[in-house]
Amino acid sequence: MFLIFGIDTVKKDIPYDKLIICSRCGRYGRYNIYMLCKCFSLFFIPIFKWDRRYFVEASCCGALYELNQEVGDKLRKGENIEIRDKDLVYVGNNNEWTYSKNTYNKRCVNCGYIAQEDFEYCPKCGQKL
Score class of each variant (00 low, 15 high):
residue 1 M to C: 04
residue 1 M to I: 08
residue 2 F to C: 09
residue 4 I to P: 09
residue 5 F to N: 01
residue 5 F to H: 00
residue 6 G to E: 05
residue 8 D to Y: 12
residue 8 D to S: 10
residue 9 T to W: 09
residue 10 V to Y: 00
residue 11 K to H: 09
residue 11 K to G: 10
residue 12 K to V: 10
residue 14 I to N: 00
residue 14 I to T: 03
residue 16 Y to M: 08
residue 16 Y to F: 15
residue 16 Y to G: 12
residue 16 Y to N: 02
residue 17 D to Y: 14
residue 20 I to T: 09
residue 21 I to G: 15
residue 21 I to P: 14
residue 22 C to Q: 01
residue 27 R to Q: 12
residue 29 G to T: 03
residue 31 Y to S: 06
residue 32 N to K: 14
residue 34 Y to H: 12
residue 35 M to Q: 14
residue 38 K to F: 02
residue 40 F to S: 14
residue 40 F to G: 12
residue 40 F to D: 14
residue 42 L to W: 11
residue 42 L to M: 10
residue 42 L to I: 13
residue 43 F to E: 01
residue 43 F to Q: 01
residue 46 P to T: 00
residue 47 I to W: 08
residue 47 I to D: 05
residue 48 F to P: 00
residue 49 K to Q: 07
residue 49 K to P: 04
residue 49 K to R: 15
residue 50 W to H: 05
residue 50 W to L: 03
residue 51 D to E: 11
residue 51 D to H: 06
residue 51 D to P: 06
residue 52 R to C: 08
residue 53 R to Q: 15
residue 54 Y to R: 07
residue 55 F to C: 07
residue 55 F to L: 07
residue 57 E to R: 06
residue 57 E to Q: 12
residue 59 S to M: 10
residue 59 S to E: 08
residue 61 C to Q: 01
residue 65 Y to C: 00
residue 65 Y to E: 02
residue 65 Y to P: 04
residue 67 L to M: 03
residue 67 L to Q: 00
residue 68 N to E: 10
residue 68 N to V: 15
residue 68 N to T: 10
residue 69 Q to K: 11
residue 70 E to Y: 10
residue 72 G to Y: 01
residue 72 G to R: 03
residue 72 G to H: 01
residue 73 D to F: 03
residue 74 K to F: 13
residue 78 G to T: 04
residue 79 E to P: 03
residue 81 I to V: 12
residue 81 I to C: 10
residue 81 I to W: 00
residue 81 I to D: 05
residue 82 E to H: 09
residue 82 E to G: 12
residue 83 I to C: 05
residue 85 D to V: 09
residue 87 D to M: 05
residue 89 V to K: 08
residue 90 Y to T: 04
residue 90 Y to A: 01
residue 96 E to T: 09
residue 97 W to C: 11
residue 98 T to R: 07
residue 99 Y to A: 07
residue 99 Y to C: 03
residue 102 N to F: 14
residue 103 T to I: 13
residue 106 K to E: 04
residue 108 C to H: 02
residue 110 N to D: 01
residue 110 N to S: 06
residue 114 I to E: 13
residue 115 A to H: 02
residue 118 D to K: 13
residue 121 Y to T: 13
residue 121 Y to W: 08
residue 121 Y to D: 14
residue 122 C to S: 07
residue 122 C to H: 04
residue 124 K to P: 12
residue 125 C to L: 02
residue 125 C to Y: 02
residue 127 Q to M: 02
residue 127 Q to T: 11
residue 127 Q to R: 11
residue 128 K to V: 15
residue 129 L to N: 08
residue 129 L to F: 13
